[in-house]
Amino acid sequence: MAQETQRRFALVAGEASGDLLAGLLLDGLKTRWPEMGAVGIGGPQMQKRGFESWWPQEKLAVRGYVEVLRHYAEIAGIRRQLKARLLREGAGLFIGVDAPDFNLDLEAALRKRGMKTAHFVCPSIWAWRPERVEKLRAAVDHVLCIFPFEPALLAKQGIAASYVGHPLANVIPMAPDRIAARAALGLDAEAPVVALLPGSRRSELRYLADRFFAAAALMQQARPELRFILPALPSLRGDVEQLLAASGMKDRVQLIDGRSHVALAACDVTLIASGTATLEAALFKRPMVIAYNMNPMSWALMRRKQLQPWVGLPNILSGEFAVPELIQEAATPRALAEATLAWLASPDKVHALQQRFCALHAELQRDTPTLCADAIQKVLEG
Rank of each mutant, 00 (worst) to 15 (best):
R88N: 08
R334Y: 09
Y72W: 15
Q157M: 13
M174A: 15
A181Q: 04
G319T: 04
G77A: 06
M294P: 01
E15C: 11
L197N: 04
L196H: 11
S260G: 14
A160W: 09
P176Y: 05
A335Y: 00
R178P: 10
E35W: 08
A73L: 15
P198G: 01
A16D: 15
S17V: 07
G382S: 11
A265F: 05
P347W: 12
L230A: 06
R304S: 02
V240Q: 05
E107I: 14
R70A: 14
H166C: 10
R202M: 14
G43H: 06
V193E: 07
A263D: 06
G37P: 09
A265I: 03
M1E: 12
V323P: 02
P100K: 08
L230R: 04
F147H: 11
A335L: 02
L187A: 08
I75Y: 05
R202C: 11
G64I: 05
K83M: 01
I229P: 01
W55Q: 10
T5Q: 13
I256S: 07
P34Y: 13
A191F: 08
A91D: 00
Q355T: 12
Q221S: 15
E131N: 02
V193M: 04
A330P: 09
G319I: 08
G248L: 08
G42I: 10
A2D: 15
A84D: 14
G258A: 03
V379Q: 13
L82H: 04
L106M: 10
L20F: 09
R137A: 15
N103V: 10
G64T: 02
D188P: 00
V194N: 01
T31R: 13
L26E: 10
R113V: 07
S298V: 11
V311Q: 10
L344Q: 02
K349D: 14
G186Q: 07
A359M: 08
L283A: 02
Q47A: 15
V143R: 07
V171D: 07
I75R: 12
V193S: 07
P369H: 04
A209P: 13
A214K: 07
A337F: 06
G186N: 03
L87G: 09
I179G: 03
Q57L: 14
W126M: 04
Q328E: 06
R32I: 03
A139Q: 02
F94V: 04
A76Y: 05
L185G: 08
V350E: 05
D348Q: 13
A189E: 14
